[in-house]
Write a protein that binds this DNA or RNA. Sequence first.
DNA 1: AATTTTTATGGTAGCGCTACCATAATGCTT
DNA 2: AAGCATTATGGTAGCGCTACCATAAAAATT
Lengths: 347, 347
Amino acid sequence: MAKKSPPAAIEKRRRSTGRVTLADVALEAGVSPITASRSLRGDAPVSDDVRARVAAAADKLGYVPDPAARALASARGASIVVLVPMITNMVFVDLIESVHDVLFPAGYQALIGITHYDPEQEEKLIRSYLAHRPAGFLVTGFDRTEAARRLLADAGAPCIHLMEVTSASGIYSVGFSQTDASAAMTEHLLERGYKRIAFAAAQLDPRTLQRAEGYRRAMRAAKRYDPSLEILSAARSSIALGGELLAQALKRKPKPDAIFFCNDDLAQGGVLAARRRNIDVPNTLAIAGFNDLNGSDQMLPPLTTIRTPRAAIGRTAANMMLDLLRDVTVPTPSIDLGYELIVREST
Amino acid sequence: MAKKSPPAAIEKRRRSTGRVTLADVALEAGVSPITASRSLRGDAPVSDDVRARVAAAADKLGYVPDPAARALASARGASIVVLVPMITNMVFVDLIESVHDVLFPAGYQALIGITHYDPEQEEKLIRSYLAHRPAGFLVTGFDRTEAARRLLADAGAPCIHLMEVTSASGIYSVGFSQTDASAAMTEHLLERGYKRIAFAAAQLDPRTLQRAEGYRRAMRAAKRYDPSLEILSAARSSIALGGELLAQALKRKPKPDAIFFCNDDLAQGGVLAARRRNIDVPNTLAIAGFNDLNGSDQMLPPLTTIRTPRAAIGRTAANMMLDLLRDVTVPTPSIDLGYELIVREST
DNA sequence: AATTTTTATGGTAGCGCTACCATAATGCTT
DNA sequence: AAGCATTATGGTAGCGCTACCATAAAAATT
């Protein structure tokens, strides 16, 4: 009532922003600002009576804490940096969305950084985000510069690695074994009786290379490994590229009888291209993908793929982050969420 | 040299965070903190000599401004709120990415809020983001609550509307006419000689409804409008749903000879389903989409669609935002970036 | 009953930066 | 040469919040 809109003659030389501050809430509740602060954060002993009065006052005045002031005073903000390679890959969009869905209701803002698969770029991003005093970091994989590693270690904020897992102690990670998943798919193809199984991949980021490794492991174990069956392209993964890789694979002699694409967008492009060429999938040529992206079940034929738990990874990692920020002990620092082989008609 | 790691006996009672502050830079450059501040921001007359000295000092010390302190002191942060309905739709991912690519190098952080197509949710988001003192808002479309509109108007930060355009004065918008684009596609189908053109849509958000309106306009003008040819579903758009909508459309009597899907994911599902049912596209049934999403050119047959300039919208709007923040006058507050009819084999 | 511990509250002083006002040194007018 | 605008710099105070220390009251201990 009294405080609102001083039409003229501002008492001192206030820069007042018109914002409802903690001091207003404290005044309304009849306590000191620090007590109000503690009460609202619930981090210290406050009587039930005060807690109720402060909550009522905050509610009445429509108080919203100022994140900037909070970050400045506490040397730690309410934002969590999420570093992903790119967002045009739906895998990372699903990841970001699930992270966001957990963090946002908990009062944290996800700051999304895009590394474009470049460790140098990632290091720059970390450096610049550090200035924001983030409460934590969620980063993709383990492949980064030594400097970036040090920056993260010295940041004084927890860091969780996504998508891959490690057994190294003191490192938090949530993901699954890319290598095992890829080997499982290769074994599935071998079991189905395919002999010349090609591996087609683009982008060649660390996880792609791990998948290539899984493919090799399984092929070698079956004594069917042939380096000429690896079709690798550094180009950005896309549906159209899948068709091109298929064309390349079919030039190999003798022809492969199956192609394992390292990502579903490539695989989708592959089945569509096969269809265009009137190749019988899966009888003449089997096609398998990875990630179970939207639409893979609608392909002609529906695509055999590996369903990766990316939404679960995001959720789990975000919850782990919240635990770490609340000083709750995290029983398992590395969580392997596995993968699921989805067999459809393309193999 | 001197400042680093005070092993014991901290002079006063500093809470020192170890951060390189503006004061350090000022000391090094031999100027006052305010001069250093102004010099780095370049917002006031500073001699070339001082500018160079400050820049050198900042560089030498590795100074990075603290966004929280800046936001607190200037009552305006370096973040720009971007409100989109969802990020599982690639249209908005493209939008976000292009916005981010312009804003980030300019020193602004995009804060992404997801409204889930819910105005109430959007209002809540605006309320909560307001606490961050954002420098500006980029919002999707014009459909929002009255309260949200007021909040944005009173925020004292520029607001640009994305995806749609308006002629209303004093409102910034970058987009294209959803209605016109949709009418253009419908006219294309009519020109091709299709007579019973169905319109299949999901999600039913404002832009979808505008597209429905464009379809109606064109159909009525051709005296071919039949309400029973509108296949609308409130469900979330997906490739699988496209197949279902196609099935529904084919139940209409007499059967439609073309289906215009309001989004490419539906249309992709449509062509795949048609193929599964051995329907000859485009001879028995034409299929058209909207947005030209990734993969539409790879479909069987490749999809006729409307290419929407979403990346350009993001870029243009972000640059407009930068202009507004720099007090550069924006000549055209509403920019219509148009659309492009992409005719492929599906029609 | 005296002492220690715990619980609840408050005061003070910043976090790092910039808005606002003031001042000194120049340039430009008449 | 006097007067005024302009340019360059600095001082002070505060943005809104919380860390740190201190204190008073209540509970637990001896």
